[in-house]
Design a protein around this nucleic acid. Structure first.
Lengths: 326, 326
DNA sequence: GTGAAAGCGCTAACAG
DNA sequence: CTGTTAGCGCTTTCAC
């Protein structure tokens, strides 16, 4: 039904190999012959079967990307940047969302490996990546982005300066006179959440009070309940540090206009249009994606050096909410 | 280097076909034999070569999705929904961003077809889809989402009620006393932009004034310039209707607090937190994704009925900005 | 239950 | 410049 090279060959009255040459722009085909072949290709509506080509050549020109959720602006920004780099290199991107489930992460990685991707970029959901070992031994380069791999796997990583960023946020609030600074963030099982908690705690020093820490689901109810609890304390927080974009937004909603200083980790659209503007410690998701993808292609080009561990800086953007004085 | 079924077979002391049976969970293998095979698979770190399988079977269990830009929340929401449905059906998703370039759209579609996707979901950037004809004849189902295909191609579509939604927005503003209602939107070459302009114009009737229409790039500068021009008129607009989420946000920024009524097409995060809250005509991108994907899988299951044209309704959400009285 | 042989559509290696 | 042959790793068909 679908025409093959053989069909094109007989239609053009040449050997199969000649068609292959034309299709692949290989030199050494007489222009007239090439033209005849191209005509036959157009007439039959021929399109090369990539699976057959991959099977024969052993390389797929495909990169796999595992993220947490495409619908999250951080990851969709990262995705887009990865896609652009992948395209620049003439490759195709295979991507999937783990939904923060380790099992799904692994399934995706294994599916991608079964499709013989040339390389992988992974934002891990799980903490055990020993399942990657045989693939790594086969020589497939893997870059971890946003979060590092579990113990025992030493590969390239591109991470944000989470500890430093959290410290910057807290010191900013301290500098504006606050001493009761709460932290709302994800479950510390998530690497970035734990790192940001660490930076927060370190910067606070003796001012740390575990009653001002809430790390659980970013559901409106949970955030609201925890905030209510904190504000009911004898010495309630006068400032908040939120651990990621989702928490910042949920917290803003839960605050319902209450006047508290706030600095959030992650920038988000419209942060400048709120009143007051929301001060944030901004990451650059597309930078992360680009750096990870470029590192991967460097490996693909044969760079066999030791694993690199890149840390991207963050930038504090003051817009008002973090500058409310005590 | 990478182990094949043949390697597993000799390691387990069975024939290649037996390994194939085990890998594919085919019945009729003695449990003990199967166990021996599985052990060999684990020991060698075998993973089936999907390209070889695809070549032989002729079906890829892969769906292709072409959108405009993953980094746009509308399309990333749609993507995620498509991905979920695709996963439910045990398939893999191949997706790419056209960046609103017809050439890129076509390249993506052709790349996906060369990879022999079982079906395609396309948010077109171009207006000519005759290049799809041979693929359609081959029997590959294609669903267009958000925008219809160009002339001469009759396939399934899943669109939003753009005309109706724009009308709803305009009538809402008319109902609050406004008579000078401006429209800011994308280039009318984009289907949705043209449809929304049409709905706007129809609802305005005799009140339509082309000086109150701005349809060009959503750059802050362009929007600001056009708004300045409109407000300098003798009878300036007292209300705005923005043609999509990007325009709404850009416009809000350009307004810099000026008191004008506004209804935007597309909902967006934080619309409720601004002051006043931003009234919108909301689409549901994940609903659109889900509907398109389910329709595609219905076709893949053999539903050969005539092309379906699904129109999804919109919902007006009043939050304050659209209810400012004249 | 198990296996041998053919062949999916292509490219690599070598002839002419 | 053009053609022939072998074989990538798998599934299908049929035989035992």
């Amino acid at each position: 039904m679908r025409p093959t090279m053989k069909d094109v060959a007989s239609a053009a009255g040449v050997a199969l190999k000649t068609v292959s040459r034309v299709v692949n722009d290989e030199p050494g085909v007489h222009p007239a012959t090439a033209e005849r072949v191209r005509t036959a290709i157009d007439r039959l509506g021929y399109s090369r079967n990539e699976s057959a080509r991959v099977l024969r050549r052993g390389t797929t020109a495909t990169i796999g990307l595992v993220i947490e959720d495409v619908a999250d602006p951080f990851y969709s920004g990262l995705s887009r940047a990865v896609e652009d780099v992948v395209i620049e290199h003439g490759c195709l991107l295979l991507s999937g969302s783990s939904g923060e489930e380790p099992g799904r992460e692994r399934e995706l990685v294994e599916t991608f490996c079964a499709r013989r991707v040339d390389g992988l970029i992974v934002v891990p959901a799980g903490a055990d990546h020993t399942y990657l070992r045989s693939e790594l031994e086969t020589g497939t380069p893997v870059v971890f982005a946003d979060r590092p791999p579990g113990a025992g796997i030493d590969v390239d990583t591109v991470l944000t300066d989470n500890v430093g960023g959290a410290g910057q946020a807290v010191r900013h609030l301290l500098g504006h006179g606050h001493r009761r600074i709460a932290f709302l963030g994800d479950d510390p099982a998530i690497f970035t959440a734990a790192a940001r908690l660490h930076g927060y705690r370190e910067a606070l020093g003796g001012l740390f009070d575990e009653r001002l820490v809430s790390m659980r689901s970013p559901s409106p109810e949970a955030v609201r309940a925890d905030l209510t609890g904190m504000f009911a304390l004898d010495d309630p927080p006068t400032a908040l540090f939120t651990g990621n974009g989702r928490y910042t937004v949920t917290t803003l909603r839960a605050l319902a206009g209450r006047r508290v200083a706030l600095v959030g980790f992650d920038d988000f659209e419209l942060a400048d249009l709120l009143d007051p503007g929301v001060s944030v410690v901004a990451q650059d998701p597309s930078w992360m994606g680009r750096v990870a993808a470029e590192l991967l292609f460097r490996r693909l080009r044969g760079d066999g050096g030791p694993p690199e561990h890149i840390q991207l800086p963050v930038r504090l953007i003051a817009r008002g909410s973090g500058e409310l004085l005590l």
